[in-house]
Simulated assay, not measured.
Amino acid sequence: MESRHVSRVISASPQTVYEVAVNVDNLLTWASGLAHSEVTREGDTLWVDSPMGRVSVRFVAPNEFGILDHDVTLPSGATVTNPLRVIAHPDGAEIIFTVRQLDLTDDEFDSDATTVGEDLDRLRELVEEVTRSRPGT
């Protein structure tokens, strides 16, 4: 199994990036690889229609370390853990998503990594828009 780290540098503080990314209401805006419809909440479990079908998502508890790891339980019942981190960067923050090949072909793996990169590009745009509207962040 291969892993690939997909990252983007965002011109905002790590705290701001984390706050935007962890806000479930923002998932539809930036996380196309995960959410295609409104997010339904049941306690700390999220339900979304995704490219993989209806899945449940559980993020780690809010924390000060920028960790946004989340488990996605697929329609098959299999659970995939997705490491996602926000770290400090000289130009603001860097968000890093680890894509794992698991049972994917090489082409599917490349496609997943491309989708994650596009999602992180949308997150960067969203964070920078929020930052422009909130001076001092």
Rank of each mutant, 00 (worst) to 15 (best):
V22G: 04
T115K: 06
V80Y: 04
N82R: 08
V6K: 09
V48L: 10
S11R: 05
G77I: 07
F109G: 09
Q101V: 15
L126Q: 11
D49L: 14
R4Y: 13
S111Q: 15
G33I: 00
F97E: 00
A113S: 15
T40G: 01
S111Y: 15
T45M: 13
L123R: 03
H36C: 12
E129D: 14
V39R: 02
L120K: 02
Q15G: 04
A113P: 06
D69W: 06
R8I: 06
E42K: 04
R58F: 01
D112L: 15
R85K: 04
V9S: 00
V86L: 07
V116Q: 00
F65K: 07
A35L: 04
P14E: 06
V9F: 03
E118D: 14
P75L: 02
T81V: 08
S11M: 02
T98G: 04
V127W: 00
T131V: 12
A31V: 05
V6G: 09
S133A: 13
R58Q: 12
Q15R: 15
T29W: 08
E94T: 09
Y18W: 08
P83T: 03
S13W: 07
E64W: 10
V86C: 06
V57F: 01
F59P: 01
F97W: 03
R124Y: 08
R85T: 01
W47N: 05
I87F: 07
T81R: 12
V116D: 00
V20F: 00
L126F: 12
W47A: 01
F59E: 04
V9K: 02
D112G: 06
A78K: 08
D49E: 15
D119R: 02
V9P: 00
S7C: 11
E42G: 03
Q15N: 13
V39N: 07
W47F: 12
R100I: 03
E19R: 12
P62M: 10
V24M: 04
T40C: 04
E94D: 08
R100H: 12
T81D: 08
D44K: 14
S56V: 07
G117I: 05
E108Q: 15
S133D: 07
L34H: 02
D44L: 12
V127L: 07
T79G: 03
S32Y: 13
S56A: 13
V20W: 01
V55K: 01
Q101C: 15
N23K: 13
E19P: 08
V22I: 14
D49C: 09
E108W: 06
N23I: 09
P14I: 04
T131A: 08
T29Y: 11
R58V: 05
D121H: 10
S50H: 07
W30V: 06
G66M: 00
R4A: 15
A12H: 01
E108P: 05
S111G: 13
R100C: 05
V72I: 15
L46V: 05
T131M: 02
E108Y: 10
T81G: 07
P83W: 02
H36V: 12
G43Y: 11
A31S: 13
E125T: 12
A113F: 09
H89W: 03
T114I: 12
T105G: 05
A78V: 06
A113D: 11
H89Y: 03
V127N: 03
L123A: 08
T115I: 11
G33C: 09
E38S: 11
L74V: 04
S76V: 06
L126V: 08
V20P: 02
A31E: 06
L28Q: 11
S37K: 14
S56K: 11
